[in-house]
Structures are given as structure tokens and as C-alpha cells.
Amino acid sequence: MQTRYKNIYLIPYVLWIVLFVIAPILLIIYYSFFNIEGHLTFDNYIQFFTPVYLKMAASSFWYAFLIMAISLIIAYPTALLLTRTKHKQLWLLLIILPTWINLLLKAYAFLGIFGTYGPANTFLQFIGIGTKQLLFTDFSFLFVSVYIFIPFMILPIFNALEELNPSLIDASRDLGGSPWTTFRRVIFPLTLDGVKSGCQAVFIPALSLFMITRLIAGNRVITLGTAIEEHFLVTQDWGMGATIAVFLIIAMAIIMILTGKRRRG
């Protein structure tokens, strides 16, 4: 009786997974075997291993890594600070709030802020550095991407820190551990799961960024996401677009497996 009920509860989940996860992935794999004229071929996979696409893949990984690393460096101390503040929930809300605003709107706002006559340059001039080109540089691309992704890094780390039993920290202090040792040997290892899920939540979407590469980086940064968009919308080479997508899916799966939670046993 009980298992039958369980099966009924499974129906929406299974339907969802099959329709919106498994079917699309199978379709992408299916499309990746067709060339632009609609013939069955492996050419797309061969083409992926040419310098153009390999270089693109390398630069995608490099930028995604930078975005993740910068986010982590800023997010960890922030999360640590947050757990020590009085109005935790309020501060947390303020960090989550920007994610409610549409990504495109935020990107357009940065076009104005980083412009030659924008507030950022006015400030630079005020402190005596003078006008700099901010838009369409690696700096602005990384800045905006980190700004967009950082809440997804702070939240899991914050949760991990919250779950941490404070008596462990007290114990470390009582046993003579300096604050740095306590952090290195107690706090950080125990929040590693939060760090891992934060890194996943940032690295994986950063790998397939596309719109920001045009708006903020002016197509000076080319990622695999840009190429997929172009193949589907402009060249209509769905096969090649799907092939790149297959590689992205494989890359993401590998990252998930490597950083996934291991059962302690």
C-alpha cells in the first residue's frame, strides 16, 4: 500500500524530469549529429577540436574560474561577517534583493555607470586618477559578472556557517588555538560543503554566459555561450550549436562529480 502511494507522489517529479530535463538533453545530442544541410555526420565533433573552438573553450573556463575565485574571495569574509551581525535576516535580504531585478536591466545600468561620462569615471576624475576606459574591458566584464553571481556564493557559505556548532569554536580557543588556526583547522573545513556548492552555483552558469559578453565586454570576451547563441540564431547551424552544448553539459557533469558531496564513511 505504502509503496503505491509513494509512486503516485513520484509522478509529477518523473514527468518533470523526463519532459524538461531528459528529453531536451536527448534532443541536443540528437541535433549534434547533423550538419547544416541536415545530413547525419560527426563533422561537428571534429570541428569542435579545431583551434578556434578549443581556444574559446579555454577562455570560457578561464573567465568562469576568475569569476568564481573573485566571488569566493569576497563572499567568504562577507558571509563570516553576516553571521556575526545583529540583524542577520535584514542584511541577507539586502544581498538577495538585487537578484530580483532582471539581469538585462542590471547590465544596461552598468553601461551607463561605466560609460565615459558615467558616475564611475566622474569619481575616478574626482580622486585624481582621471578618465579611464572601463566599458568593454576585462575589468568591467569580471566586475559585472561577480556582481551578478555573488549572492549565489554568499548564501550557501552563510548557511554552512550558521549550521556550524559554536561550541566547536569555543573548544578550539580553549585548547589554545589562535584565531587563524581556529579558522584554518575548524571553521573552514567544516564549511567546505557550503564553499563547494557556492562554487558550483557560480562556475557552471558563468561558463555559459553570453549576453554580458556583448553588452559589457563588447564581444571582446568570447565564450562558448556566445557561440551557441550565434549558431542557433544567426547561422542556423543548430548542429554545431548543439555540439558545443553537449561539451558544456559534459564539462558541467564532471565539475558536479568532482565537487559533489562525498559521503563520509
Binding site: L111, G115, Y117, R214, L215, A217, G218, N219
Partner: peptide, 17 residues
Amino acid sequence: VKAIVGDEIKMLLANEE
């Protein structure tokens, strides 16, 4: 080349970027 952009090009040129 400063940038390769879409429709934003109108705004950017009008703002003397």
C-alpha cells in the same frame, strides 16, 4: 575597435562613447 555591439550602438554613439 572599441567594441562590437548590437542595438546599443545607437545609444553609445549618441553619448559620445
